[in-house]
Simulated assay, not measured.
Amino acid sequence: MSVTRRRLVVAATTLACAAVGAGAAGLQGIGPLARLAVTETRLEPQVVTLLNPPGDPLAVLVGVPWTKEGYCVGQFEVEATETPTEVTVGAVVSREDPTGPCAGVGTVDNLAWVDFQLVAPLGSRAVVRSSDGAALPIRHW
């Protein structure tokens, strides 16, 4: 059995422009990030969305809890591991830089969306969260 592990730096995907207010606590960045006032937050994946045909069969959107007004393109990073039977999605890391430009992408249902590319189409494989092994619901849009 081969295991493909990929570190994916992803751009946030716009799904809507609804603004939802509230705050979420984060961890201050360490090392050079602390000097730049970058706030780093680890978020647990809640749902996975696949694009309906003719969408890219390798494109996956991961929804994470996000109760702030918006988020920036390129703010999130996620790791995933693929095997022939499942895709394991790790925590999504959010890096907020209050000094940088941000278009303020909107949220849907208090979720921010992170996209990444699979090595092979999902097919019948399960998608699980790495922190607890919970199966993530799969939506089709």
Results as ranks from 00 to 15, higher is better:
126 A>P: 11
67 T>C: 01
23 G>Q: 01
28 Q>Y: 05
45 P>M: 02
46 Q>A: 12
83 T>H: 06
70 G>N: 02
31 G>F: 01
98 P>L: 11
49 T>I: 15
44 E>Q: 11
67 T>S: 00
137 P>N: 00
77 E>W: 15
46 Q>P: 15
80 A>H: 10
48 V>K: 11
44 E>C: 12
83 T>A: 02
45 P>V: 08
18 A>P: 06
113 W>T: 06
32 P>R: 02
111 L>M: 00
5 R>N: 08
33 L>Y: 07
57 P>I: 11
7 R>E: 13
37 A>I: 05
39 T>A: 12
45 P>E: 02
71 Y>V: 05
41 T>W: 02
36 L>Q: 08
116 F>D: 05
101 P>K: 13
132 D>K: 13
93 V>F: 13
92 V>D: 12
109 D>M: 04
111 L>D: 00
73 V>T: 13
13 T>W: 10
131 S>N: 09
10 V>W: 11
3 V>K: 11
19 A>K: 03
78 V>R: 08
3 V>H: 11
58 L>I: 02
94 S>N: 14
81 T>I: 10
85 T>G: 09
99 T>Q: 14
117 Q>K: 05
29 G>F: 04
138 I>L: 04
69 E>F: 01
92 V>I: 15
112 A>D: 00
128 V>F: 12
71 Y>M: 02
50 L>Q: 15
134 A>C: 07
108 V>M: 09
48 V>L: 04
61 L>I: 15
11 A>M: 14
114 V>Q: 06
115 D>G: 08
101 P>W: 12
101 P>Y: 03
64 V>Q: 02
82 E>W: 10
69 E>A: 01
83 T>P: 04
125 R>I: 07
121 P>Q: 04
42 R>K: 14
13 T>M: 09
40 E>C: 05
97 D>V: 14
7 R>T: 14
4 T>C: 13
39 T>I: 05
64 V>G: 01
110 N>E: 01
138 I>G: 11
110 N>S: 00
30 I>S: 09
133 G>D: 09
88 T>V: 06
7 R>H: 07
72 C>L: 00
31 G>P: 00
30 I>Y: 03
40 E>I: 12
14 T>E: 12
123 G>K: 04
99 T>L: 07
95 R>V: 12
132 D>G: 11
87 V>W: 02
72 C>N: 05
49 T>K: 11
72 C>M: 03
135 A>M: 07
135 A>I: 14
130 S>C: 10
76 F>Q: 00
30 I>M: 03
44 E>H: 10
42 R>C: 14
107 T>I: 00
55 G>D: 13
85 T>M: 09
102 C>Y: 11
91 A>W: 01
138 I>N: 03
59 A>D: 15
66 W>M: 05
83 T>Y: 04
62 V>F: 14
83 T>M: 08
28 Q>P: 09
50 L>I: 15
47 V>I: 07
